[in-house]
């Protein structure tokens, strides 16, 4: 009880630090997720036409996925130095696999008959993608984004090791000086942030994708 109360009073006493860290953490996560989406979705679309190219790209991405997040961050340090940029780069690597894989699979699994019908009615390649494939793959793309968001928020904790800042700073320094209140002041908000985003995105998904989900199979 005293630990929790202590944590609250620590947070209250260091509110400015707390706010800065929270903003850094959010900034890092949003940039990483945004870049992950900006790279992953077009990449998935561009490999859609060729199965060999897709297998190649997916294999590379899967290999990246096996590297522990801390190792990616550590590798970014000598190459890109310290601070926000190398942290974001490392986190993008973390965000890419779920976005790319989900988008690719979602797009590929759109019923071939629907694509045929759309083409036969005179839609261009781009129109088929925009009006048919992407809307129908949206649930899969969204799921990939959710996974990526959670991984990025958790992964951003480690950015503290290469001077990226964020809530991870309280954890690393809390461990270093054996200050449990400081440690919890970092750990608990990260957990709440991750869970909150998960719930929020889940809610958004249900609202935005009601039509597609209900639609399902029309055969």
């Amino acid at each position: 009880m005293s630990l929790i109360a202590g944590t609250f009073s620590w947070v209250a006493a260091h509110w400015d630090l707390m706010r800065t860290a929270l903003i850094q953490h959010a900034e890092m996560s949003i940039w990483s997720l945004g870049l992950g989406l900006a790279i992953g979705i077009p990449l998935a679309i561009s490999v859609l036409g060729s199965e060999r190219l897709a297998a190649f790209v997916i294999n590379i991405i899967n290999m990246l996925r096996t590297i522990p997040s801390l190792a990616i961050l550590a590798a970014a340090l000598p190459l890109l130095g310290i601070g926000l940029v190398p942290s974001v780069v490392a986190l993008v690597v973390l965000a890419l696999p779920p976005i790319l894989l989900n988008t690719y699979i979602g797009l590929r699994e759109v019923d071939a008959d629907l694509v045929d019908a759309a083409a036969g009615m005179g839609m261009t390649r781009g129109q088929i993608l925009r009006k048919i494939q992407i809307p129908l793959a949206a649930p899969a793309i969204f799921a990939g984004m959710r996974t990526a968001a959670i991984q990025v928020i958790s992964g951003a904790t480690l950015a503290s090791f290469i001077g990226g800042g964020g809530l991870g700073d309280f954890i690393t320094s809390g461990i270093a000086v054996m200050d449990q209140q400081r440690l919890l002041a970092g750990a608990v908000p990260i957990a709440i942030l991750a869970m909150g985003v998960e719930i929020l995105l889940g809610f958004a998904e249900r609202r935005l994708l009601r039509n597609v989900r209900e639609g399902g199979d029309t055969r």
């Binding site: 019923d111 008959d113 629907l114 045929d116 019908a117 759309a118 083409a119 036969g120 009615m121 005179g122 839609m123 261009t124 009006k131 048919i132 809307p135 129908l136 039509n211 597609v212 639609g215 399902g216 199979d217 029309t218 055969r219």
Partner: peptide
């Protein structure tokens, strides 16, 4: 082909109604 297809009605075997519309 795109211009041509807009002038030709097309009904496929599985009907192919777009489920999200």
């Amino acid at each position: 082909p795109v211009t041509l297809r807009r002038r030709i009605g097309y009904v496929i075997q599985q009907i192919g109604l777009f489920p999200h519309m």
